[in-house]
Design a protein around this nucleic acid. Structure first.
Lengths: 236, 236
DNA sequence: AAGTGGTCTAGACCACACC
DNA sequence: GTGTGGTCTAGACCACTTC
């Protein structure tokens, strides 16, 4: 029934922005319970096909308009922070605010960083653009190397900027990885999206000027906001 | 209540693989309705934190073990099909099967391909590894350039292989883009996942030997299966 | 105040995995 | 057969937006 309802809604040839009948109307027309209608709509909403505005109505969602971040394919320097730069060039205001900073432990991060004897610090931040939440970031690094960084981050939450300007450590990218994931309850709250909504997870390892692994970063970006592009050089 | 329930489950210090109490037990213990329990579990399941085995029980999901596909950062030739190659090197059997092939239209695809006067063909395939579904692929190209391709695809669903071996067109990558998306009902059915589950969407434009845009490809990959890595050269 | 979606209860039946 | 999760109904109350 739920599936049938979804197909009906899909095939109703509605255009983006169109409003659906209310849940009560749909329930009556199709002779099903309103909860059933609600569940069908909730699924399509999670799938990004419908936009539910509480106390207003349910609408066909417009296709997402994502901001495109171009990845440096060849550069190794200065690729760090390219998102912020690109946004600035687009006339937007990017801001990173500190959420938490604490000593923590994670086996996988340790493996990436390769610092068996160091205490690790985990710093969480929220990245926003024009006042809207875009990403939750988690930074990992040896506490000893950036001692006292938390105080600075309270003023300026941009971790890489503090690493560079305050601590004098120049970072460059070693690698980055991309995957899709579901928003966990904590992500969901910070990003203002329902639990389970897709997020784009971008992990990365940064090394210092001597090539030693220094920071490991996980960003979880709202999938409706960002897309990454990798351009290939065609003149080989 | 639902949120409270989720927090309880999260903080219950359960290890991956542990089984939760049954829905009836949870409902009774917490004095809520079983439907409420079910909804809370369904959300955490969508978020990838729980694994529900129908008629068996609900378990704490193990962290995903994703296959890592390394992106060529510098190459422009032969990067096409690198996933298949990497899988083969890993001893896995990759297979692509034709789902549909038809003349179709899409404004955005047309913009990418830049072929205003050609009829476009859309080919859909399912990419599987070791018998498991991994991705749904959608290929777009000028029908005239690959006329009669459908018959060949019925035998060998690997579109790029047919383009090269049968049609004699050598493709290379111009760009690729990465985003997270939610599985639509059709994706969900083919990939054997619930609607709304995160998928990794990888679009790409391929050009022929002369650099002319030739095929546009969208892959939607199961997020629990694949992750892409971009390595940076460090010797500059 | 009226109407919308969000959540919850109580109860029922079903499909499925496992023994 | 037994117990699991999956779905559905009927009815209720709530929070929120809009007028």
């Amino acid at each position: 029934m739920q599936q049938l309802l979804q197909e009906r809604i899909e095939n109703a040839s509605l255009r983006p922005g169109d409003q659906l009948p209310t849940e009560n109307e749909l329930a009556q027309e199709l002779a099903v319970n309103r909860l059933t209608v609600w569940q069908a709509i909730a699924e399509l909403s999670l799938a990004g096909q419908l936009e539910v505005r509480r106390a207003v109505g349910t609408f066909v969602a417009p296709p997402p308009t994502q901001f495109v971040v171009t990845l440096g394919a060849q550069r190794s320097k200065a690729a760090v922070e390219e998102t912020t730069q690109a946004l600035r060039g687009d006339g937007r205001i990017a801001q990173e605010t500190l959420i938490s900073s604490a000593i923590a432990e994670d086996a996988q991060v340790r493996e990436h960083l390769g610092l068996p004897r160091h205490r690790l610090r985990r710093v969480d931040t929220l990245f926003g653009v024009d006042g809207q939440p875009w990403a939750v970031n988690t930074y990992w690094f040896a506490d000893s190397r950036f001692r006292g960084i938390t105080a600075h981050l309270a003023d300026d939450g941009s971790v890489f900027r503090v690493c560079s300007d305050v601590c004098g450590v120049d970072l460059r990218d070693a690698w980055r990885s991309f995957a899709a994931a579901a928003a966990r309850p904590r992500d969901a709250e910070l990003l203002d999206i329902p639990v389970g909504t897709p997020v784009l997870e971008r992990d990365g390892l940064n090394v210092d000027a001597d090539g030693r692994p220094t920071t490991f970063v996980t960003r979880r970006l709202r999938s409706d906001r960002v897309r990454f592009v990798l351009n290939y050089d065609l003149d080989d």
